[in-house]
Design a binder for these strands. Structure first.
Lengths: 142, 142
DNA sequence: CTCCATTTCTTAGGTTCCTAAGGAATTGTA
DNA sequence: TACAATTCCTTAGGAACCTAAGAAATGGAG
């Protein structure tokens, strides 16, 4: 089999598939899916008001994807979507008490995944890695 | 909004989503989807026998995902799946004449996407980038 | 003030990924 | 030789993405 020239696009897609499977494994014994766990982790780190569009931006997903995921999280009792007085288009995402129960586990799991992922990679290489990805995202700006 | 500490997992997932949308845009005017175009590109570069498992490995997708995609490509007349004499479990993936018509366009499109993605990034940073991703994939070895 | 553009979110319908389960052929081992 | 494990692929059903279309509120330009 002839392997194609190294392709950054292919590398990223390939690693992303592997990562998704790991994330799904973490959540497999819990009440929520991989992407819901990831969203929980994000929300737990926030102090101010958070809206759907913040989640869309954080993971580069489309409004429809975010909307559907949040609907499921709401149905499971992990979040509420509340109106804010200053703009009726916005719905503030609020964690429920039930969600807070998962705090420690979610943080632990995602921290461990990140550690596993980056194990053995020198800090200066990680810096380059982040810089390169940021540049790539700019290059694809939509 | 408080941004989480830079997370390699999040960066990869985010970039991967952006890339997928670009790939889908490339294929939007053609007879095949983004992932099918990517597979076509891979198959066009091969000389020896290629099987489904080679495609699974190339993009880190599961057998069920590959099987379904190849079924659709077969239905569209882009490939055939042929038996080989030495092992009846294997089905050789063969491009049809119809697929060959797309050769130039597929190669051009994927080359341009890769160029866009990596524009302005020094060669030595790309080397680090590839090395880091390879290490990450090893770290996630399943 | 009015109306048009923009922003935010939702719904509908589709693709690409997944796990789980299993059929069929091959390979390894007793 | 037989039988168990492995390999390769498929099917069924679910999850995480997508585009397209649009509702509802806000903001901006005349």
């Amino acid at each position: 089999m002839i392997s194609l020239t190294k392709s950054a696009a292919r590398y990223v897609s390939k690693l992303s598939n592997k990562l998704r499977r790991q994330l799904d494994m973490l959540s497999s014994r819990k009440d929520f899916s991989g992407s819901q766990g990831r969203t929980l982790h994000f929300l737990l780190a926030q102090t101010g008001d958070i809206f759907q569009k913040d989640i869309e931006e954080e993971y580069s997903i489309r409004p429809s994807t975010a909307s559907e995921m949040l609907k499921q999280m709401e149905e499971k009792g992990l979040i509420r979507r509340e109106a804010v007085p200053y703009d009726n288009r916005l719905k503030k995402i609020v964690l429920t008490d039930k969600a807070l129960i998962y705090r420690r586990q979610v943080v632990e799991d995602l921290t461990r995944l990140e550690e596993t992922l980056t194990r053995g990679i020198p800090a200066e290489e990680m810096e380059v890695f982040f810089r390169v990805i940021e540049r790539m995202m700019d290059n694809l700006a939509e």
